[in-house]
Amino acid sequence: MGLTQNATVVDDGLKSELSKKGIVVTTMNELYNWGRRSSIWPMQFGLACCAIEMIATACARYDIARFGAELFRASPRQSDLMIVAGTVTKKMTPQVVRLYNQMAEPKYLITMGACSIAGGPFIDGYNVLRGIDRFIPVDVHLPGCPPRPEALLYGLMELQKKIDSQVIEKTEWYQKGLTREFPIPELGPRGLVPKFNPEVWQPREVDHRKERYGQPIVIRRKAKAPDLDAAPAPPRPAAAKPQPTQPPKPTV
């Protein structure tokens, strides 16, 4: 009976049988991943409204502590996970990228909310970055505006699955010559320089937005304004207060 190639892998059925008898069979890899996924320490920072949901997730009702991720660290050096919760403005982008660079490996990133995924409601704004994935790699995209706390917990569970699937010898942060430093963009005269990092992100070949709405993103000048001196438009039904000079006409 020669050794098969997978001799070290105990199949799940046998494992569970053994565990009923009080014998735990595991591998170094599983143990290591179990430890990592059960103590993901997120970094304590929020950028906009999504941060409020993140705070709610950390509080007693949703209690992220059930997943071992309740220790929000105030320093990037001590955290495993960055939750980009909120709108990333162009002015804030260099700081976010710098914080990500400062985190120790292994590090993970969840983008929380439509804003940090792609700019969200502000996608046409002059001041908002259209997705943090333009500069740093993202592990879990979590859509919503804002995602509910349950969704954040689900995102965390997805991340745990990802961590579980990693194999120690193959993980990139144990490879030789790994540098995961991402260049920090600069603030230029019209926006960020560069607009994205082509090693991390490239524009889609098909612009789904254009296909769907039939027009490119409006970046050209708009040149029409209401004329205030003209006769005022008839008040909308939801006008704030009835004018005392115009009492409602009694219906005859």
Partner: peptide, 25 residues
Amino acid sequence: KDYEQEDSETLDKDDIEWLDRNGVK
């Protein structure tokens, strides 16, 4: 109203220069 936003989907000359300086392919 006459402000024209940059097109954030295409790189400009400045961007290319910056990326070259920082060793990005």
